[in-house]
Structures are given as C-alpha cells and as structure tokens.
Simulated scan of single mutants.
Amino acid sequence: MLKLDSLSAAAPSFDAPLEMLNACHDKVRHFCVQLDALPDYIQLHGHSQAVVNSIAGIVRYFEVAGPAHHQDEEDELFPLIMARQPDAAPKIEQLLGEHGYLHARWNAIRDDLNAYAAGTLGALNASEIHEFTRLYREHAAREEAWLFPTAASLISDAELHAAGQRMAARRTTPR
C-alpha cells in the first residue's frame, strides 16, 4: 500500500492518486494563504494589475482544480470505502456535505473577487474570505487524517492505479 508520509521530491502523478490528492492539499493551503492576504494587501496598495493577476490565479485554482479534486474523491474513493467499510457512511456524508458547503461559500467569494478585479466592487469581505479559508484548511486536515489513510488501507494498488487513470482521463476529456 502507499505510504502518504514518504512523498518523493518529484511531484506526485496520477500513477499515485492518493499522494497526488494529498499534494493538492498543499496547493489548497498555498492559495488559501494568497486569498487570506488579499484584503490587507488591497488596503495597503489598492487596486493594481498585481492584484488582478493574483485574483485570476486564485479563481482559476478554485474553479478548476478544487472541483476536480472533490470529484476525484467522490467518484474514486468514497464508493470503494463505503463498499468495504459501510460504517464509514457518517464520515463520507460529512465530507460530501463539506464539499457542497465549500463550493457554495466559494461561489460568493468568487463573484466578489471577479467584481473587484473588474473594478465594480470597492472592497473584499475579509471575514468571508477568512472563514472560507479556515473551513477549507480544516476540511483538508480531516481528509488527511481519515480519508487518505482509510483509502490506503482499504483500496488495492491495482484499484488505485485504475482510479488514477480515470482521474487523469477526466482532465483530458472535453466537457
């Protein structure tokens, strides 16, 4: 089985889907730091091309990579865990609920970020941003503490490899 605590120096690939999903959480934390810093940066420096560029990167990450990450977990890990450990249902339901709640919270923040970048909103709501990033960090920590180790213990290497191939295919298949 995969060892999540022994990540190689090279970026994980779809050949190691649990390591890749775990590494995605590092990117989530990176973009949460950027997002958290925006309101104070804007207060000190105002609207600028650097802010617009930062917003574009943050929005792109949470609009594309974030939902794909959640779909990977929901389509590839949750069903296999449930099939082998039915008493995991409350934890899976909690994670599913968090995915939905984070998505809803993100939609409101995204709209404000895009409006600010376009110059049609005067300020960002720092408390909404900080609450979103706090919730996302807590969600990632829960997955790292339970979901990934549970998946590693219940899902075979062959199944994980097949899951990784499906994850990669979803990113190359036009919608």
Rank of each mutant, 00 (worst) to 15 (best):
L38N: 03
R171Q: 15
M1K: 10
Y61Q: 08
A140I: 07
S8G: 15
I58T: 09
L21K: 04
L160W: 02
E76R: 01
A65D: 15
T150E: 13
L21P: 00
L95Y: 11
M167F: 10
M167H: 07
V52K: 15
E76T: 00
H161A: 11
A104R: 14
R110D: 03
P149H: 05
T120S: 15
L121H: 07
G97K: 09
E63C: 12
Y116A: 06
D87Y: 06
A65I: 12
G119E: 06
F78V: 10
Q85Y: 13
S54N: 15
K3I: 06
A89H: 14
R134F: 08
A16Y: 04
H45A: 12
F31R: 04
Q49R: 15
D5H: 10
I92T: 11
P17S: 03
A10K: 09
S13E: 07
A104M: 06
I58R: 10
E73P: 09
E19C: 07
M20T: 03
N53V: 10
T133C: 08
A88S: 15
V51S: 08
I42P: 06
H45I: 00
H69E: 09
R134V: 02
A126W: 02
N114D: 07
S127P: 05
A37T: 08
V33L: 12
L77D: 09
G46Y: 05
A10I: 04
K3L: 08
R170H: 14
A68M: 15
D5M: 00
P149F: 07
T133P: 02
N53L: 14
V59M: 06
H103E: 12
M20F: 13
R171L: 15
S127W: 00
D112K: 04
Q71A: 13
A168Y: 14
Y116N: 01
E98G: 01
Q94G: 02
P17M: 03
W146D: 04
D111W: 05
K91W: 14
L154F: 10
E98A: 07
A140W: 07
D72L: 00
L4K: 02
F14E: 00
D26C: 01
V59P: 12
W146C: 05
I109K: 01
V28C: 06
E159I: 02
L7M: 01
A158W: 01
I129F: 04
L113R: 08
T120Q: 12
N114R: 15
L124N: 01
R84H: 15
H99E: 07
H45L: 12
V59Y: 08
H161R: 12
T150D: 09
